[in-house]
Design a protein around this nucleic acid. Structure first.
Lengths: 368, 368
DNA sequence: CGTATCTTCGTGGGCGAACACGGAGGGCAG
DNA sequence: CTGCCCTCCGTGTTCGCCCACGAAGATACG
């Protein structure tokens, strides 16, 4: 009977990894409880039993049934997600969606995803919310490090309390985070330059839009800018393309329109324009109003308005970075680390997706 | 006690959808068994009870714990996947990976994924394998319809036996399939034309490579070709670009090299080249050998060799279609349909991904 | 040699759902 | 009134795993 059991399981090994704790116990000549103690390193096991179990575990290539595990376990997990509050249609809304989806997907593993927002233009708001998060004692934290110093202070506190945390969208190198999901901004700036400039065969002027965040400019846009410049330097295009810096602001669109109008009066050979933040739609809007739709436009992120201008051929390229996946995978990896005890990768650069009028539709469709 | 229960669950509704059958039963004033009968439409329930249960189900927004369900269910599922046998490094290897991953992910839902291969150059091989599949009585079949007529015969037989089937990679419209995952080939041909031609500012000759499959040319490549031509016609580029058709074959690389050499002797202004199948590496190889690396090259699919030439800047663009996801999602949707009883979408066009030297790395990295 | 203490380990109940089994109650014929 | 069938529905077992409880064996000490 016992021999028969062994034969069956050895046969099944390649085909079917459905080995149960019960089987392991039987093969090792111990009880299920002992196997469980070994599996969870809960002690109270003799060296001899432990060895026997470990050996069989190895041989049988045991993988636990994670569903049964979560079903039986009464441990609850709270993952807090900390990122900027936002309006509908903004970049962070896609992050929202990713967290929401993860919340549904992992709820039966006893995971509760809690979203917390702060004002990205006010570091005090971040400090306040992060303190609340701290005192609520979460099991893990996902956050977007908008404010460098304040984030470091927060994550140091988390480290002190043994609460793992993950970065999303951009990272801070000096602290010990669990995962990072985000785009390689430098590269994406380089690619933007390539896409925008390689099709301009003659000398031209290029508008480079900058928007000031109150306080500091974001890491993201700075790095993109650097990547952009790298391309120009690498191919010695300083002569061919004259870069015109334009400062826009977040509130006053009339002023922005005026600013752009002046630029077009001053410079008469403007053939391209780029924004390094997600608001290329604003530029598109003004250029359409000023009757300069022939200017090649490139920008970032799949906001609804951006997509609309892409479809209308006002924007030539959008560079996307799957923010929903970033959020989703961040939560998934927390599960893998804390619940499933699986290997995870620390640094995760998401693809730099190149979207044009012709492929945007299937792209959006596929990701629902 | 009962009231207390109600209050708790109503409170939890927004936050926590962890409503159990037991709760539903209690609220509806019936037993768990009755709820179960209603849920599975297994009959033997009075109109009154059924109504009560349905009402509570609705109100509580009940979603079953799919893990607990699979754990308890002893029903086993066999999904057979039918597609071309292949060498390492070929397109179909990525499909393999997707099926393998799905096999692991869904094994604890009692799903067994079985891969079957046929010779894509021999329709008899397909007929033989498909007959074997039929007699093995699978619960669902995923297949790539390489041979149109033979596939229709097969799927008709499947329909007769109430076995659902899904298409992958390309589809056949006239039969009633469960899902289709694949690229919109016409569009991807159109995009290829745009990418290849829009950067060529002067008159040029373009090599259009064709490879004959024994028997018929594939749907895929034909549609891509059509899309390509559509772009040229739409922008009246017939004058600007002279298309040179080149016929290559699958076996004799020396002959192919010779053929290309002759073309370059005959035509002296060749500036671009495209293949509509996945073997652009072959073209890249020959062009490198003939010292024509300046020719802009575009091709399809992320074979290792293709990627290598992309990284070396011999190939300018690769257009990709996530074959692994196609396979994975096909199996996932079978689970959703047959096991989870969830809504699925029939036609699923996968994104037309545009890869260049600069974004290929993060793309590959992200999908492991 | 009996008893107390510690280490090691087996057993049983429960997680949420599926499903088989059989019991309760009503209707109807004998 | 008894016996039988039919409709409706509650109960109990099972899936693989977790974990609390407490039993058995080993060791120490009076």
């Amino acid at each position: 009977m016992c021999e028969h059991g062994i034969i069956v399981y050895v046969e099944m090994r390649e085909i079917n990894p459905k080995i149960r704790i019960k089987d392991i116990a039987e093969l090792a000549g111990v009880s299920e409880g002992t196997v469980d103690r070994v599996l969870h390193q809960r002690g109270d096991v003799s060296e001899k039993s432990k060895l026997a179990v470990t050996k069989v575990l190895e041989e049988m290539n045991y993988t636990p049934n994670l569903f049964a595990r979560s079903l039986a376990s009464k441990k609850q997990y709270r993952f807090v997600c900390l990122y900027p509050m936002h309006q509908p249609g903004e970049y962070w809304e896609n992050v929202d969606k990713g967290f929401d989806l993860a919340a549904i997907d992992f709820i039966h593993h006893n995971v509760h995803v809690e979203k917390r927002w702060f004002n990205q233009f006010d570091s005090n708001s971040f400090i306040a919310v992060s303190n609340e998060v701290l005192s609520s004692e979460p099991d893990a934290v996902a956050l977007s490090p908008i404010f460098r110093e304040e984030t470091i202070e927060f994550t140091n506190e988390l480290t002190k309390r043994d609460i793992p945390f993950s970065f999303i969208d951009s990272q801070i190198d000096d602290v010990d985070f669990l995962t990072y999901y985000g785009q390689n901004s430098f590269k994406s700036g380089y690619i933007a330059a390539k896409l925008l400039l390689s099709e301009l065969s003659e000398k031209a002027q290029i508008l480079v839009i900058r928007t000031h965040r109150k306080g500091s400019a974001s890491n993201q846009t700075l790095a993109r800018n650097k990547g952009f410049m790298q391309y120009i330097n690498e191919f010695n295009l300083q002569e061919k393309f004259e870069l015109i810096n334009v400062e826009l602001n977040n509130d006053d669109e009339n002023a922005n329109l005026q600013t752009l109008k002046e630029k077009f009066n001053t410079y008469t050979n403007i053939k391209g324009a780029i924004t390094f933040n997600s608001k290329v739609y604003r530029l598109a809007m003004h250029l359409a109003a000023l009757d300069h739709a022939d200017v090649r436009l490139i920008g970032y992120d799949l906001l609804e308005k951006n997509i609309s201008y892409l479809k209308q051929d006002v924007v030539s390229y959008l560079i996307a970075q799957r923010p929903d996946k970033q959020a989703y995978f961040t939560v998934r990896d927390m599960c893998r680390e804390l619940i499933f005890k699986q290997e995870i990768r620390k640094i995760n650069y998401v693809p730099i997706d190149i979207l044009i009028k012709e492929n945007i539709e299937d792209y959006m469709y596929f990701t629902e």
